[in-house]
Design a protein around this nucleic acid. Sequence first.
DNA 1: ATGCTAATTTTGGTATACCAAAAACGGTTG
DNA 2: CAACCGTTTTTGGTATACCAAAATTAGCAT
Lengths: 229, 229
Amino acid sequence: MPERTLAEQIADSLRRDILLGTLAPGALIKERDNSAGRGVSRTPLREAIRILASEGLVILRPSRSPVVANPSQQEITDDLIVMNTLESLGARLACVNVTDEEMDEIDALHEKMLRISDTADAVDYFEVDMRFHRLITAASHNLSLIDTHAAYMARLWRPRFLAASLRRDRARVLQQHGAIVKGLKTRDVALVSAEVESHMRHLVLNITDIYDRKEHPNQKVAPQEEAAT
Amino acid sequence: MPERTLAEQIADSLRRDILLGTLAPGALIKERDNSAGRGVSRTPLREAIRILASEGLVILRPSRSPVVANPSQQEITDDLIVMNTLESLGARLACVNVTDEEMDEIDALHEKMLRISDTADAVDYFEVDMRFHRLITAASHNLSLIDTHAAYMARLWRPRFLAASLRRDRARVLQQHGAIVKGLKTRDVALVSAEVESHMRHLVLNITDIYDRKEHPNQKVAPQEEAAT
DNA sequence: ATGCTAATTTTGGTATACCAAAAACGGTTG
DNA sequence: CAACCGTTTTTGGTATACCAAAATTAGCAT
């Protein structure tokens, strides 16, 4: 019937809940409870869980309830390192492959980001930020890279969101974005590469900082129970 | 019931069929036919298909039978580029993080590869080759990287196998592996990085060569042949 | 023949029923 | 009170049944 399959919709919904924190890290996702709560059968819910598992947002355990991923700081840092590498590669490829239309779009988005930087709330601003990076990667014209990068973006949504919510160095971010745009326009691979990697390094520092500050060894959160309405 | 779920077993079996060419690229995988043929129900088969889809070996289409992926030369090249980048990153991280035990294991495997290079058949030799690269990546101690790299290894199994079956530059491969081992031992990031990337560049060339030789229009139904024994 | 439409079949998507393994529970016994 | 063991409950895994799109085919009118 639908363009979008039930399992995908459920996956979207669950992903949203996980990323926004409504579904706490470590929470159990029992097939029966959740499917009943959402008024669907176990089959599509099950499939949705697999989707999220392949994205790294949910952990599957043999013969045991799936659980919302609760990545350690080390795991997040590992993800960031890989993502950094992918994005750097994407930017370098984009220098070669970006079309004029894409360049215009990137430029326009950057301009928009400059305009709204004072007024936009965290979520809106962050969405634009994400889109900026996604556009650059898309300009690489390497489908595999785009997919894999998108997967890491999804997995790192929450940490990145927290980092972006610290308004503190929005100025630096915007400046670096500007440098990246300039590098792309002039096809300056070295500049773009350096800026992307510097950009990421700051992100790693910020996120590390946030998690240190929270000082939580939330490796073992107390038994979480979850009931769907 | 078992440690290994039915769906996973089916996925393994299907993957094997796909990689060995028993299931031709472009072939339809109908849920009913395949599940009946294997004497299992549609449910686990369905799940197996999703697993393979997430690995890029099978393409899902809305309301249409899944089909065995038939990657174009361009797509394979794209995959190789990403894999190259991941492997390079892995090697660089391994320079910092590799343990003595891991170093010994890598060294031993390289020695073994040298020993059997004259006598081993294509499959055995290739398995050792794959394992060598996997070990290096594992020494990065970055789990995300290891997983993602493994996914690309799986996706590129067949093209790489074809390339490795050309015995022609086994000598160069062994020499480069030796250089990588040496670089790891001396923690020479620049050397390791350069060698890995050169290694990969040759691989890209070889694979490109193979696919060019086969004539390109395999965009349609797949030309089936060859099993290098 | 040709183009169109209506019945039919095929297909993937979803719901439900069933099973066996694993926890959770409870009572008994030292 | 604690440790053990049998029973019940809960859980994920699998099989089967059902449904509605979509593709295919059959028939018809031109």
